[in-house]
Amino acid sequence: MPTIRPATAADLSGILDIYNHAVLHTTASYDLEPVSLQSRQEWFTARQKAGFPVLVAEGASGEVLGFASYGTFREKPGYNGTVEHSVYIREGQRGAGLGLALMERLIAEARQQGLHVMLGSVDADNAGSIAFHTRLGFRQVAHFHQVGRKFGRWLDMVFMELLLEDEQ
């Protein structure tokens, strides 16, 4: 099993490759064009500054096989206990347990930080991702119709929610 560890700046090229493949070939991201290395560096720096983890799954030869992170859900202070996560796995590596390992570690870190809710935004047609989140204890709490457009069609999005702690 690959090593799950905090990402470093040296991992950003691998993270960028995985993300941009998803941008170009899937509806996992509603970005329409590949992002730049500079934008990934800014994203990484912002996550570090905010104290949010960026985790990678590292293969035996040091390659980045997947990554996961969470960040601010909304900017208003009343949302400070809620984060939105993302998890991406390299093409050809999906279904091998990497996503599960990354998410279990990410959820543990969110709990250690005292966060209350983790949200995931999933394309409504991505039954695999919805089932994956459900296995982790997330439940679907919203369905937004035609909120995105990619590959010449309108896309629905669902929110998946995980309560990280009992109501306080």
Rank of each mutant, 00 (worst) to 15 (best):
L16I: 02
L37Q: 14
R94H: 01
L115E: 05
G92L: 04
V117W: 00
A10V: 03
K150A: 07
V23C: 02
M103T: 02
E58S: 13
R135G: 01
S61D: 15
A108T: 07
Q41H: 14
G128E: 02
N20V: 02
D31H: 11
L102A: 01
A131V: 07
M157H: 12
K150L: 05
A7G: 01
V158N: 03
L32R: 06
E91Y: 01
S61K: 15
A142K: 01
W154F: 15
A101Y: 01
Q38N: 03
A108Y: 06
E33Q: 14
L136N: 00
D123M: 00
M157E: 15
A10K: 02
R111E: 06
R105F: 08
A60R: 13
L162K: 09
N80V: 11
F132L: 01
P77V: 02
V122I: 13
E161V: 08
R90A: 15
K150P: 05
A22P: 03
S39L: 15
P6A: 11
G59I: 13
I89W: 11
E91T: 11
N80E: 09
D166P: 06
S129N: 08
G62E: 13
S39F: 12
F151I: 06
Y30F: 15
I4E: 12
T27L: 02
D123E: 04
E167H: 10
H85K: 09
R153M: 10
Q38E: 14
L65P: 05
W154C: 06
F73W: 14
T82E: 10
A131K: 01
K150S: 07
G51V: 14
S69M: 10
D166F: 11
E167M: 08
D125T: 04
P34C: 09
V54Y: 10
D17S: 06
E63N: 12
F144N: 09
Q168A: 14
I15G: 03
F67V: 06
G78N: 01
R135L: 12
T72S: 08
F67K: 02
V122M: 00
H85I: 08
A108E: 12
R40C: 12
M157W: 00
Y30K: 05
I89M: 07
L32W: 02
D123P: 00
A108L: 02
F144D: 08
L98D: 05
L65V: 11
Q38F: 00
Q168L: 15
D125A: 08
Q140N: 08
H145Y: 14
G92H: 02
